[in-house]
Amino acid sequence: MKSNTMMTIKLLLVEDQQLVREGLKGLLALHEEIRIVGEASDGAEALELLAALPPEAMPDLVLSDMRMPRMDGLGLIRALAARALPIPVVLLTTFDDAAAFDEAVRAGARGFLLKAISPDTLRQALQDVAAGGTALRPSLTTRMEERHGERAFTAADQPDPLSPKELQVLRLVASGRSNTEIAALLGNSEGVIKNHCSAIFSKMGVRDRTQAVLRAIDLGWI
């Protein structure tokens, strides 16, 4: 998306360290398309804040630290799902840990980023997730491939095969691109790409993009 047509992203910021939280606020405030509608020191406080917000002020996405006291980022993701609040969550972590990445995507995180990333990378990741994509950094997905590379599968584990076009779409999904971006790259309408994604999810037995990426890594498709 270009800046002159960019949607406003309403963001809930969740970080237990005040200095880090203030730094993120200052950084994100530099971008006019990102508006922070609330901040919390942990997942439990975030849930309290969400319960008090009017519908028009609900965030488009949550940017949360992964490790926090009381309720961490994973607990927040699960609590949002239990409350039927479909707000995508991008997790920030200090360590490039494949086990943590595995845990995050299985919980339903739409993004998993290192705190050492550049401001431009963070901004782009938030835009991608707000547009319906994912933000899974390549170094982390590579580590996941290494982690699952020796896993053995039986015939029962194998989902229905994807068509060449569906596999192409899945690989672009895994790179973090939105449906709009994939449509532009492949010369299709966004509706066609949505249909491909629906078919991919059905064949793979998953419910969303992050689960599809994780399953594809397990199967060695990407």
Rank of each mutant, 00 (worst) to 15 (best):
L28N: 03
Q127N: 07
V90Q: 00
R106W: 00
Q18Y: 09
K2A: 07
A52Y: 03
V105Y: 00
G220P: 08
E32R: 14
M58C: 10
A156H: 12
R70Q: 11
K115I: 08
A52W: 01
L170Y: 04
F201T: 07
A131N: 11
L136A: 01
L61T: 01
L27N: 09
V206I: 01
K25G: 04
K194D: 10
A52L: 13
L53F: 05
H31K: 14
M204D: 08
F101G: 15
E32S: 13
A98K: 02
R123W: 05
R137K: 03
A44M: 13
F95N: 11
R123D: 12
L27F: 03
I77R: 02
S3I: 13
E190W: 02
G205M: 11
Q17N: 14
V169A: 01
V37T: 14
K10N: 12
H196K: 08
R83C: 12
P69N: 03
V173H: 01
L172F: 08
I87Y: 04
V206M: 02
L85E: 07
N4Q: 06
M7N: 12
W221F: 10
A199K: 15
T93K: 03
R171W: 02
Q17M: 12
V173S: 04
R137N: 10
R209A: 13
E103N: 06
M6V: 09
A130N: 06
P69Y: 00
T210A: 05
L47K: 03
F95V: 12
L11V: 10
L185S: 06
D72N: 14
T180E: 12
P86R: 00
L214I: 11
T142K: 09
E33H: 15
H31S: 13
G220I: 07
P119C: 08
P88F: 02
D60N: 14
A109P: 12
E48P: 00
R171C: 06
L214D: 10
R35E: 13
R151Y: 06
F112Y: 15
P161C: 00
T8A: 11
L162D: 08
E45Y: 01
D65V: 01
S64H: 05
A40C: 08
L53R: 04
M1S: 14
A98E: 11
V14N: 01
M7C: 06
T154K: 05
I217M: 01
D218V: 03
L19D: 04
N179I: 15
V20A: 13
T134W: 00
G111L: 03
S64E: 02
I193M: 02
L219R: 03
F153T: 10
N195H: 13
T121P: 05
R207T: 15
A174T: 04
G133T: 12
A46S: 02
A57R: 14
G191W: 06
A104P: 12
L19N: 08
A81P: 09
L28M: 08
L76Y: 09
R21K: 09
I193G: 00
A57D: 14
V14I: 13
P69A: 01
R137A: 14
A46V: 14
L61Q: 07
A104H: 04
Q158V: 15
R67F: 10
N195R: 15
V14F: 03
M71G: 06
G149V: 07
A183L: 10
G187R: 05
A44C: 04
